[in-house]
Amino acid sequence: MTRTTVIIGGGVAGMTAASRLADLGEQVILLEREEQVGGHLRNWDRLFPNRRPGYEVLNYLTEELGSKVDIRCLQTVTTIFSGERDFQLQLASGKSLRCDALLLATGFDLFDARRKEEYGYAIYDNVITSAELEELFRSGAPITTRQGKVPKRVGFVHCVGSRDEKAGNLYCSKVCCVTGVKQAIEIKELFPEAEVFGFYMDLRMFDRHFEEMYYEAQQKWDINFLRGRVSECAENQDQSIVLKIEDTLTSRPLKMTVDLLVLLVGFVPSPETLRLAAMLDLPVGEDRFLEPADEHTKSTLTVKPGVFLAGAVKGPFSISNAIADAGTAALQIHAYLKTL
C-alpha cells in the first residue's frame, strides 16, 4: 500500500519538505491556498544578507519540485478527521483526501500595521510597511512619496508589532532587523543623497554575514541608527512625517521629520494555522505559535502521531532556517511512515 503525505502550505517550508519526501520515495500531495506556490517568498525583491534576487531561490525550489509532487493550488482544508493511523481531509472544493502523515507548513501572516495606530499607517500618506517597500523594489516602479517627490529623508521603524507587549506580541520576529538594514542600503543605492535613519531597540544580527551588513550600512552607506522606540508620528502640512522618539543613548526626546517612513512589520501566527491546530488538538504557545513535541529534540514533531510541523507555524523563521527545518521534517516523516 502506498503511503501518502499531505503538506498544507506551499511556501518555502512546504515546497522543500515536498521535494525531500519525494526524493525519499514518498507520495506527496502539496496543498496551496493561492494560485501559485512560493508563499511570502514571491513578494521579495532581493534577499538578505547578500541581496541576491528572491526569484533565484523561488525558481530553485520550484524546479526541485518538478513533477515529483502532486501540487494542488487554490485549495483550502475545511475539516480534518483524525483516524486510528490516518487522516481524512475535507477540502473546500468538495473533494476529500486520505493521508498517513500530515505536515503543517502554513507559515505566518504579517503584523497588521494599523494596529500601531500611533505610527499613522493607513492614516498618513507616507507611512508604508517593509512588505510594501519590497513590493515597490520588485515592481521596479520609481520610489517616491505619495505626492510624487523623491524622498530626501527616509526612516525605518524596527520592531513594529514585535517585542511589543502593548501590541500583544512579546516575541522577536528575527528577520526584520536585517531586512531593515538591507532595505536601508537599497534606498541609499537608489538615492545616494538621501538621509536614511533606522530606529531600533537593539539590532539582532544573529546569523552569518548579518553583522557585516550592518557595518556596511553604517560605514559605506552612512545610514544613521538611533536607539529608541518611536513613540508617535504626526503629519505635516506637506505630508511629511514628524516622528517622536527618545534617543536612549543620550536620554533625550527627539523630534524628526522624514519624507517616507517604513514600518518593519513582524510575524504573527496566521488564523488559518490556528484553525487547523484547533481541529487537530495541537498545543498552542502563549505567543499563539504552534508547539512542537519537544523544542530541542523533536522540533518538527507534534504531540499527535502523524502530524508534523515545519517553518513559521512555530514562530519567526528566515528562509534558510525554514529550508533546513523542512528537510528535518521530511526525514522525520519518512521515518514515521516506515513504522506504519
Binding site: 495606530e117 500611533e118 492614516i123 498618513y124 508617535e232 504626526a234
Partner: peptide, 12 residues
Amino acid sequence: GCMTHLTPSIIR
C-alpha cells in the same frame, strides 16, 4: 493629550 497622539485619527 498623549494618548490621543497615539490615535491620530481622533486628532484628524
